[in-house]
Amino acid sequence: MQVTPYMWAAGLDGHISPFQRGSTIGVEKSFSDVLDSLKFGGFINIWGRYDRFVFSGDIMYVDTTDSHSAGPLPALAIPGVGVIPTGGDIDAKVDTKQFTATMMGGYRVIDTPQFTLDALGGVRFWYISNDVKLTGRLGGPSGSVSYGESFGWVDPLVGMRAFFPITEKLLVQAQADIGGFGAGSNLTWSAMATVNYVFTDRLSAALGYKVLDVNYNHNGHVYDTRLSGPVLGMTYRF
Rank of each mutant, 00 (worst) to 15 (best):
T4S: 11
P5N: 13
A9F: 14
A10M: 13
D13I: 01
S17T: 04
F19R: 07
V27Q: 02
E28I: 06
F31D: 02
D36C: 05
D36H: 12
S37E: 13
F40N: 10
F40T: 05
F43M: 07
I44N: 04
I46Y: 13
I46H: 08
G48V: 15
R49G: 05
R52V: 05
R52E: 15
F55I: 15
F55P: 01
V62P: 06
V62N: 12
H68R: 14
S69L: 11
A70C: 03
G71Q: 09
P72C: 13
L73E: 05
V81S: 02
V83A: 03
I84W: 02
T86K: 04
T86F: 09
G88Y: 01
D89S: 10
D89C: 03
I90N: 10
A92V: 03
D95C: 04
Q98E: 13
F99L: 10
T100M: 12
M103N: 00
M103K: 02
G105D: 02
R108Q: 09
R108F: 00
V109K: 15
L117N: 06
A119L: 13
V123L: 12
V123M: 09
F125D: 00
F125S: 08
R137D: 08
P141S: 11
P141L: 10
F151T: 04
G152C: 14
W153T: 00
V154Y: 01
V154K: 09
V158G: 15
G159C: 00
A162S: 13
F163S: 10
P165E: 01
P165C: 07
I166V: 10
T167Q: 14
E168T: 05
K169C: 08
L170Q: 04
L171E: 04
V172T: 15
Q173W: 07
G184K: 01
S185T: 07
S185N: 13
N186Q: 14
N186M: 06
W189R: 05
A191Q: 13
N196R: 15
F199N: 11
T200C: 05
D201F: 04
L203D: 11
A206M: 03
D213R: 15
N215P: 00
N215T: 02
H218M: 08
N219D: 15
N219K: 08
T225A: 06
T225R: 07
S228K: 15
Y236F: 12
R237A: 08
R237E: 14
